[in-house]
């Protein structure tokens, strides 16, 4: 397990978590064992692209088509935080 998420890494949701839309909070949330995690819209978009097929670079490119700008370091830091909680698994082969 590395501390930095490589751009060639392929992030995917861990098997024990799932996402759903929380109408009360009007936010996408991630459900894990004994935890509910609310995501802001940018975070939800990133997580939705974590399909285990796309690389981090692919995700940044796709976000670039949707947003006025994309801060690569913020995407990587976000994924690192999720990976450190084991909600996201990153493979790099």
């Amino acid at each position: 397990m590395t501390d930095t998420v490589p751009r060639t890494g392929r992030p995917a949701l861990a098997r024990f978590v799932k996402t759903r839309y929380d109408k009360a909070r009007e936010r996408q949330v991630l459900l894990g064992p004994e935890t509910v995690v609310t995501l802001n819209p940018t975070g939800a978009d990133i997580l939705a692209l974590c399909d285990g097929q796309r690389t981090v670079g692919d995700i940044v490119d796709e976000l670039g088509r949707r947003y006025d700008r994309v801060v690569d370091d913020e995407v990587i830091a976000f994924l690192e935080r999720l990976a450190s909680r084991r909600w996201v698994v990153i493979t790099d082969e």
Partner: peptide, 16 residues
């Protein structure tokens, strides 16, 4: 021309 969303720093907040 499709309008682009405004980038915000991606964040999460964790809460039986």
């Amino acid at each position: 021309m499709e309008s682009l969303s405004i980038w915000e720093t991606p964040e999460f907040e964790e809460f039986a």
